[in-house]
Design a protein around this nucleic acid. Structure first.
Lengths: 354, 354
DNA sequence: CTGAAAGCGCTTACAG
DNA sequence: CTGAAAGCGCTTACAG
């Protein structure tokens, strides 16, 4: 059984002390360049891998960030994860990723474990279930910096990086109305979560501002996933009373709506305008792409890391916790090139009134 | 700044020694039940979270498994992750998840870090790029158990849990042929990866066995994702020469194919039979569900953990490394209830010959 | 059932 | 530029 090589093994081989080897490996200026290189070469030859457990224990820094997301089979989250990973690597941090599967209890367990692993900071997007506040109190008590992104708990005094959900939703629906659409449905997310409530509020605001009634039978709440979109729109299809446009609270919801429409009739899929909050990677490749409210997803990941690292540094420097920062990113309405907007061509079965 | 509470803090408060507290917390039989409960209660009150770094360092076991997957925005992998997480938790292990984004270099970095974190074992599904074999040699040299699942490196002597890819593909295509289909396209994955080669081989075998030629222009290799399916089938649509059925190497590929077909015409989406290797969660909800080769996805996760834990135990017990185990799981062809199979109703535009 | 000693593999001051 | 001492917070034998 191969004994694992330690600092001291390298030191003995090189007739140095383990402190010198330790410093050489970390490019400490104490050590001459020649020695550093010799040490590194020897370490590589011997197949040395530093024991991060020992390093973290003695340095009291794990150089590790915990990242907790509600789900991963979703472009939005996989993109954020990628951006966080990239940004963290640049700064010399590793990421420990945990998935709560939209369950508060798993979220709690994961955070507990990350705390026990002594991560230097936490990046969290909460599950759609009512969160366990006690675990966040615990994070506070242990003095571990935490930054929420996208989905947060609003009143716990942690920093957050979010998107201007209400504004984005309102602008998207405004745009539809300006294009002449009047009959606009909203397949909403869960109202348990802030982003669900805000996006819906933006939709309703836009209608009211233009003096349009909110069509209660066309506002359907549920999850944030494709199945909800599919089921919800099937219900609408069954009534026979169809909207001219659909505002979907997430891109997966929009996919579900699209599939329901498409299966019903290709003509409909040409004529019912879908607008989604958020984008999916493939949208632009489709013949009938959705309109999308673009969230700066990668930037959200980057900024979250940035805010978190700043808090970690402040802590290191012994500065008292500052007020939490709340970064709100702007969205942008994306019209694919040559988008076959219903008002601009003659094909739609359901021409918008107006 | 809240000082973190340690074993010794609890010990002092309770007038015990830290060893006793340590044992009590881990339910060691040395300690009386009463004391154990008192200790636990006090620990909870004081907000104690064990320092896993210290625990792992001194016990030489991290009770942590590293899990490396090529991508996460894909039902197959998110399901495996879920199953692995569940199974590991039962056995008292935590999971550190890492995503290689189909890149060999990221895969290498992640494994390096997991090794440095001293995970007790590794579960890996390789990226579609040519893997860096050196890192796996390193894993071997450090004597860390590793089990590949789904996508493996065949000749490195590690255990694996896979699916009978070739058989599954062959049976699916056999079935189509028995139903009277003759013109069957294959949107294949990458031939860089074993599962891509095997699934294609199964498809070709089925055709040959029935004396049918392999239609080279209808076999299109690429990635494993939706975009490849969409692009590939668009190319076929452009030729005007359409198959009666499509065998897709993965479920996402099938989705892309379906979307391309659907956008073209609803009639086509009723009549071109799609069969996918693997399932996606939503398939059953759709009006025109695909036929699917069911992979026992959760079982794959469970078995992978099982095999890995067995190897870890063997190592603990000082037994010499046994021969690698190769678990191959069977697949099953899934026909949704009341599936509108083309040969069974009169609607298809392209009735299968035969 | 309880305790004192040694050590896991590193890093952090502090001397020289 | 190099080294000896102390310690990070635990657990593992080994005594009693």
């Amino acid at each position: 059984m191969a004994k694992r090589v330690r600092l001291i093994d390298i030191a003995e081989r090189l007739n140095l002390t383990k402190v010198s080897v330790s410093k050489a490996l970390r490019d400490h200026p104490d050590i001459s360049k020649e020695t550093r290189e010799l040490v590194k070469k020897t370490a590589a030859e011997m197949g040395y891998t530093p024991n991060l457990l020992a390093r973290s224990l003695s340095s009291r820094r794990s150089n590790t960030l915990g990242l907790v997301v509600p789900k991963i089979a979703h472009t939005f989250f996989s993109t954020v994860i990628d951006a966080v990973q990239e940004e963290a690597t640049k700064a010399g941090y590793g990421i420990v990723l945990a998935v709560s599967s939209e369950r508060a209890e798993l979220e709690r367990q994961h955070i507990e474990r990350l705390l026990a692993m002594r991560v230097d900071g936490l990046l969290v997007s909460v599950s759609k279930e009512q969160p366990d506040r006690a675990i966040y109190e615990h994070v506070r008590q242990m003095n571990v910096p935490l930054v929420f992104f996208d989905r947060r708990i609003e009143d716990m005094g942690f920093s957050s990086v979010t998107v201007a959900d209400r504004d984005g939703a309102r602008l998207a629906v405004d745009y539809l109305i300006e294009q002449g659409y009047r009959r606009i449905a909203h397949i909403a997310g869960s109202s348990e979560v802030e982003i669900g409530r805000e996006r819906r509020a933006g939709y309703e605001e836009a209608l009211r501002r233009h003096g349009l009634p909110v069509p209660a039978h066309w506002v359907i709440e549920g999850g944030f996933d494709e199945q909800h979109g599919y089921d919800a729109f099937r219900r609408i299809l069954q009534t026979g009373d169809l909207p001219e446009a659909v505002f979907a609270a997430t891109f997966p919801i929009g996919l579900g709506v699209y599939r329901a429409i498409c299966e019903h009739s290709v003509a409909l899929c040409r004529s019912i305008q879908i607008v989604t909050f958020g984008e999916g990677g493939l949208n632009e490749f489709y013949t009938y792409p959705h309109l999308c409210v673009r969230q700066p997803t990668r930037e959200m990941g980057r900024r979250a890391v940035e805010v978190l690292l700043a808090e970690i540094e402040a802590l290191d420097a012994g500065r008292e916790a500052e007020a939490p920062r709340h970064v709100v990113l702007e969205t942008e309405l994306v019209l694919p090139p040559d988008y076959p907007l219903a008002p601009l061509d003659g094909t739609p079965a359901h021409t918008p009134a107006g």
